[in-house]
Design a protein around this nucleic acid. Sequence first.
DNA 1: TTGTGGATCACCCCATTTGGGTGAATAGAT
DNA 2: ATCTATTCACCCAAATGGGGTGATCCACAA
Lengths: 217, 217
Amino acid sequence: MMTFVSPYSKSMETRVIIIEDDQTIRDAFTYLINRTDGLKMVNSYSSYENAEPYLVSDFPDVILLDIELPGTNGLDAIAKIKKKYHSGQIIILTVYENETSIFKALSSGASGYLTKNTPSSKIIESIKEVMQGGGPLSANIAKMVIQSFRKSQNSPLTKRETQILEGIAEGKSRTKIATELFIDKETVKSHIKNIYNKLDVNSKEDAIRIAKQDKLI
Amino acid sequence: MMTFVSPYSKSMETRVIIIEDDQTIRDAFTYLINRTDGLKMVNSYSSYENAEPYLVSDFPDVILLDIELPGTNGLDAIAKIKKKYHSGQIIILTVYENETSIFKALSSGASGYLTKNTPSSKIIESIKEVMQGGGPLSANIAKMVIQSFRKSQNSPLTKRETQILEGIAEGKSRTKIATELFIDKETVKSHIKNIYNKLDVNSKEDAIRIAKQDKLI
DNA sequence: TTGTGGATCACCCCATTTGGGTGAATAGAT
DNA sequence: ATCTATTCACCCAAATGGGGTGATCCACAA
């Protein structure tokens, strides 16, 4: 497989495009980008549909993408862009800080997530970060992402119970869990009974759901 | 429950402590913090054991914590600090960018994660971010965190198969999955057979493991 | 000292689940 | 016209899961 070299590579410029329905914001970003050395706003579009035919020929290094978009929304646009044009890094712009859309965007392949009120110096910095292999996140977005990792500090479950519940959540059978923990499968069963009591459930499925919901595992 | 008000609150200063075994770094951070308006380095310690008795009386807003620490390592220190002293935000300092230690630190309750080569302006900025409820992450750390969310773009599984595998990973029975997808349980079984074939496994557990490992779910 | 909670194990029951086999109909895309 | 995705059917036997009701041992606290 050959490496495709940008026809613009000698210019050393970072090529940026923006897909955003608000013209004022488009213009503001265009101004901001173009007045910065090393950055160039190649084109701006008001919807994914408008941008789609030019994705490849624009040859962008960075794609600024609004989430709230008419037609194809930003979330779906990420997947479509990734399919049509692999080389660009996508940075999401948003006004709403919706937890699920953040995670969907990141899992679809966005490289960064910025709120629109981010100061312009930060925007430029973020574009440069992404070009250097970094992952820009606004402080508030980063907080949400960090919190998504955080486990409950006061779990009702003991260490052993947590260990066993983790095994269950990994789809392991009681027998397998017992072997891995060097205990009898009857012991595992006892622990599971205690877990079910504490969580007030009576099935694997419910236990896993509650445990993930309360961040016990 | 009463709210405990800091005896220092009228000063409006952000109280910082650092736990870090390298004295040069300790001194550098102390200098950096104290020369910044609104920040004050209350104390610095070379190990968690040394810091532990003063955690409460220091009343820190922000705790800068090294991961590679003699005695109690930084990861374990997070949990102990959280137990002894709830009010402070913990920012991790590290030279090594180890994926698992990042996630362990965040799940133990760290509010931010910075590499030691972070420029001093960024450090100050991060402390302020954390005080405003943000979550500071170095660009490279943020990238790793973001990538941990990313799903495989070219999964061997179809949408339906992915859907069913997700159900399995949530501990649901075939019957339950069938009901939720409005299809027969025999159909679910067929899909599972295809999933097992594609992933080259022959059990729930292995399917889940491979799927998570390859980020198919 | 007497609990209480955590972790360990044993044996009862039996419905449900799981994994493997083989085969087939339909619709949609290449 | 072929391939894939999706749907369903029926065979089988072993394993698993959930609910009981017990017991022992140990550590740590009231």
